[in-house]
């Protein structure tokens, strides 16, 4: 199963590294990353394969949310199908 990880917040040093480290720790493979910085607002979207993750989905969510809180970012982890069904016919 694939999940979409979105990271929103104020730009700061090392965001990408912190999120990807957290993912790597639990066996989540990042397939694709896009990011944009608009003025000082940072938006990063990652498509990740969580099929071989070592933790359950809700624990992954909690882990990344914690990374978000510690760095003043908003991090969502959502099943990719929600976006596919809403935006594709």
């Amino acid at each position: 199963m694939k999940a979409v990880i979105t990271v929103l917040g104020k730009d700061s040093v090392g965001i990408l590294s912190k999120v990807s480290t957290a993912c790597a720790e639990v066996g989540v493979n990042i397939i694709e990353v896009t990011q944009s910085v608009l003025q000082d607002m940072f938006a990063m979207i990652m498509l990740a394969d969580i099929g071989s993750a070592t933790v359950a989905f809700d624990q992954l969510q909690k882990k990344l949310e914690k990374v978000g809180e510690d760095n003043n970012l908003k991090i969502h982890v959502m099943h990719e199908d929600i976006f596919n069904s809403m935006h594709k016919i």
Binding site: V4, T6, L8, E32, T34, S36, A43, I45, L47, H76, M78, E80, I82, F83, N84, M86, H87
Partner: peptide, 11 residues
């Protein structure tokens, strides 16, 4: 592929 703007719109 999912588009960034669609993902942000949903969120």
């Amino acid at each position: 592929m999912l588009e960034t703007k669609d993902i942000l719109e949903t969120i």
